[in-house]
């Protein structure tokens, strides 16, 4: 049996690096925008106040939008996935064996990860397991697997080696 962790050591390192670099890039862009605006303030003369104010507003708006985008998307996603990975590592594991198939659509829990729902046909019947959407592609479609489930979320899966 080959076990595949959805959030293995390498993945955690990648997520931490992604979060750190996004935060750094946001801080850098924000800092540069602020510096530009402060520099513009130093060149204020009677005839150019309106133009410089407009330039500063444009720079701070665009720079702020870029920094906010980095904070709201890559940094926040990485943070949510890291928290999710921590929950998977700490929770009690349950094993489910069955044939899997994805339900259509991706859902998002506010302030947490985006997930897809996995339908698992077991000998006892059918049950649903949630999978972090960014990891869903790791699973083979319509195959019999042993799923390691923590609090209703897929943490790992095992497949027979061929």
């Amino acid at each position: 049996m080959k076990r595949t962790e959805l959030f293995g050591g390498e993945e955690l390192v990648r997520l931490r690096r992604k979060r750190k670099s996004s935060l750094l890039a946001a801080a850098l862009i924000g800092g540069l925008a602020l510096l530009c605006c402060v520099l513009l303030c130093c060149f204020v003369r009677t005839g150019n106040v309106k133009q410089l104010a407009l330039s500063a507003i444009s720079v701070s708006t665009v720079g702020g939008w870029a920094a906010l985008s980095l904070l709201m998307f890559p940094a926040a996603d990485a943070k949510h996935e890291l928290r999710h990975a921590e929950m998977l590592r700490e929770g009690p594991e349950e094993r489910v064996r069955g044939t899997i198939g994805f339900e259509p659509g991706v859902l998002r829990i506010v302030g947490s990860i985006r997930f897809r729902t996995l339908r698992v046909r077991t000998e006892e019947g059918e049950r649903r397991v949630k999978v972090c959407a960014s990891r869903a592609a790791m699973l083979p479609e319509r195959k019999e697997l042993t799923l390691c489930v923590v609090n209703g979320y897929l943490a790992a899966f095992e497949e027979t080696e061929e």
Partner: peptide, 17 residues
């Protein structure tokens, strides 16, 4: 953010000038 930026820098430039 756009509104906050316009209000903040408008105020700063009125102070500076």
């Amino acid at each position: 953010w756009l509104l906050a930026s316009a209000i903040f820098w408008g105020w700063i430039f009125s102070l500076v000038s």
